[in-house]
Simulated scan of single mutants.
Amino acid sequence: MGFLACRAELHSHSRASDGKPTPEEVVIRAAQLGLSAVALSDHNTFRGSALAQASAKELDLDITIIPANEVRTSRGDVLVLCPSLPDEDPPKGIEPPELRKWSLERGCIMIAAHPFQPGRKGVGRYLFSHYTEFDAVEVWNARGLPPLNWLAERFARSKGLPMTSGSDAHVISELGEAPTVVFAEGCTAEQIIEAIKKGMCRPTKGRMGFKALREAVEWSVGRRLGRAY
């Protein structure tokens, strides 16, 4: 059987945590962009993914929703991608080895998010000595500094770890700026996750455009000032 090249947005956010768009808006935009799949990885919750799945079904959109959660562990942020919606969220502040156990029990994978970006709360140096706890490394984050993305890529290559990319979108215009190309038998959540575990994926290296940057700054400032959107 041949493989499909699934273009998957593996890192995005909605109003279920600190993003501007609703889960429904994320799903619609992902479908408009022609993405095969989108992981709505809201901070410390799978709620955004659940709402996104419901929206995709209601709107009859041909796109896979990968249940995801950007978990704030005791060592930093970790993307958890699952084949189906888990029965619970992992606790905020969980130790990475415990999150590893939690993930394995549910068939999920762990990806080190923006590991070396300053101020982004990545796992950083912890990854150097504990890389075996992770299934992949996000080597290109569209919001990240390129030299530190390259550092993540060099490290992942040196350890033979699968490499992913993501937009880390918090506003709709960021979505799909750096999808991961996953080579799988199909573009279901389970097939994409299995392919990533095997290293059958390739990061892309898009950057935030001016419109996305302006919108993201306005959203971030507005949230901090308590403005309604």
Rank of each mutant, 00 (worst) to 15 (best):
L10E: 02
S12C: 15
S12R: 02
H13S: 05
S14A: 09
R15W: 01
R15G: 08
A16M: 11
S17M: 07
G19L: 06
P21R: 01
V26Y: 00
R29K: 15
R29V: 00
R29P: 00
A31R: 13
G34L: 06
L35T: 03
A37V: 09
A39T: 08
H43Q: 09
N44Q: 13
F46S: 03
G48S: 03
G48E: 03
A50V: 01
A54G: 00
S55R: 04
K57E: 11
L59I: 02
D62L: 08
I63W: 13
T64M: 09
T64Y: 08
A68T: 12
S74G: 05
R75Q: 15
D77K: 05
L79I: 13
V80K: 03
L81N: 03
L81F: 06
L81G: 03
P83S: 08
D87C: 00
E95G: 01
P96E: 12
P97Q: 13
L99A: 07
L99W: 04
K101P: 00
W102A: 04
E105N: 07
R106V: 03
G107C: 06
I111C: 11
A112I: 03
P115Q: 01
P118H: 03
G124Y: 02
R125P: 00
R125N: 10
L127V: 04
F128M: 12
Y131Q: 06
D135Y: 04
E138F: 13
V139T: 15
W140C: 05
W140D: 05
N141P: 06
G144Y: 07
L145G: 00
W150N: 01
W150L: 15
L151N: 01
A156L: 12
A156K: 10
A156S: 12
S158F: 04
S158T: 05
P162Q: 13
M163Y: 02
T164C: 14
S165F: 08
S165A: 15
G166T: 10
S167V: 12
D168M: 07
A169F: 09
A169E: 08
V171Q: 06
I172G: 02
E174C: 05
L175N: 10
L175I: 13
A178D: 05
V181A: 08
V181Q: 06
V182F: 02
T188C: 08
E190K: 15
Q191D: 14
Q191M: 10
E194A: 14
E194M: 05
I196S: 09
R202I: 04
K205W: 12
G206H: 10
R207E: 11
R207I: 07
A212T: 03
L213F: 12
E215K: 06
A216S: 14
V217K: 06
V221S: 01
L225R: 15
R227T: 05
R227Q: 08
R227M: 11
